[in-house]
């Protein structure tokens, strides 16, 4: 194949890959934000924040 064509083909594949990565990363990002900030998890988060205090872990 002509080098120019090959480069063009490669860049298209790259575009798909980068696009898919962007979507996957965005979904993960939204996922962990929702987990961290969900009101249901508020108490757990506050408990976890205190875990280092005291020798044995959570108290």
């Amino acid at each position: 194949m002509n080098t120019l064509l090959r480069e063009a083909a490669a860049s298209v594949q790259m575009g798909w890959l980068l696009g898919a990565m962007t979507v996957v990363f965005l979904v993960c990002f939204v996922g962990w934000i929702v987990y961290a900030y969900h009101p249901r998890n508020r108490e757990l988060m506050e408990e976890m924040a205190r875990m280092p205090l005291g020798d044995g872990g959570d108290s």
């Binding site: 961290a36 988060m45 924040a49 280092p52």
Partner: peptide
């Protein structure tokens, strides 16, 4: 937190910090 005897300011932020960083 142990040396300061204070809980972590925002545990939620620490989760976002961790996953953001490793990704």
């Amino acid at each position: 937190p142990r040396a300061a005897q204070r809980p972590v300011y925002s545990y939620r932020l620490s989760i976002v910090h961790f996953w953001g960083l490793v990704f």
